Amino acid sequence: MRPQSANFKSIMTLALLPLASVSPDSQLPIDKDARLTLGVSATYNATAYQADNNISFFPVGSYDNNRLYIEGAEAGFYPYKDSNDQVRIGLSYDGREFNPKDANVAAMKDLDKRDWSVLAHASYMHITPYGGFKIKATTDVLSRHDGQTVSLSHLSKFTKDKLTVYPEFGAVWQSKDYNQYYFGVSADESGRTGVDRYDAESGVMPFVAATATYKINDRISVFGNQRVEWLSSTQKDSPLTDGSVDSKTRVGVNYTF
């Protein structure tokens, strides 16, 4: 493993540390009335890559019985959950990718493809009257890039009648391996295409996001999500990018069983 894996293990330990100070007896009971929600979403990706924007489709789900959960493209279990603290461990889909066929610079069409990946994660969130404060650490499990990320964020929830809105803001640290895969240019690629070689470093990427859900009836709901990410300096300096902002606009429909 790369040296950064040791750093990730330390972050994972930090995320799980609150378990040492809580009593298992204070956990929320299993919710036997929890319902499964499944749906589909369409996402418009306004990318900072020198490539055409695109639309993608993806299944989504929702379920939470206080032991197991599904949330969008993430699923896992709770080692601990009460009304104020929750620890999660699971897998999540990272949809970042670069398809050279979509490049709008001729030389870049012969670069290697950068694929999406699946990340293993551990997270801890503390819920206060002012919202939830969350730390989340991830590592690549498909060996696409063998990179890691660590995010710090604040989440809120506002409900009125059938409408619920979830704002979130924070920042994500992405490791050198992560950024090199998605934003670096190897010597082989440079020699083959003429695109300048580029070695990316680790960096911090701020973001804001908001999800709105509207219940049409007891079973059907519609939702929209907007996420804006400001690229770190090492990402902006990459020859693969011509902008400093990634934006994803997602809309979809859910059915609750």
Score class of each variant (00 low, 15 high):
163 L>F: 11
234 T>I: 05
71 E>R: 09
89 I>K: 04
40 V>N: 08
115 D>T: 13
167 P>M: 01
20 A>T: 06
100 P>K: 02
86 Q>G: 00
149 T>C: 03
191 G>D: 11
222 V>N: 00
75 A>W: 02
153 S>F: 07
58 F>H: 12
117 S>G: 08
232 S>M: 02
119 L>F: 04
73 A>R: 09
102 D>C: 05
70 I>E: 06
186 S>P: 11
256 T>K: 10
100 P>T: 06
134 K>I: 07
197 R>T: 14
71 E>I: 05
24 P>N: 12
235 Q>H: 05
117 S>C: 06
199 D>A: 14
196 D>P: 03
250 R>T: 15
73 A>Y: 06
193 T>K: 11
160 K>G: 15
60 V>S: 05
116 W>R: 15
37 T>R: 04
107 A>T: 10
23 S>C: 01
223 F>L: 03
176 K>F: 03
84 N>Y: 11
151 S>N: 10
121 H>Q: 13
176 K>C: 01
10 S>Y: 12
109 K>A: 00
114 R>C: 09
172 V>K: 07
246 D>T: 04
190 S>V: 11
248 K>H: 15
170 G>I: 03
89 I>E: 08
206 P>H: 00
255 Y>C: 09
108 M>I: 04
221 S>T: 06
55 I>H: 07
151 S>H: 09
79 P>G: 02
173 W>S: 11
32 K>C: 06
215 K>L: 04
48 A>C: 04
149 T>R: 02
191 G>F: 03
107 A>V: 06
93 Y>P: 07
158 F>K: 11
40 V>M: 14
62 S>P: 02
126 H>D: 02
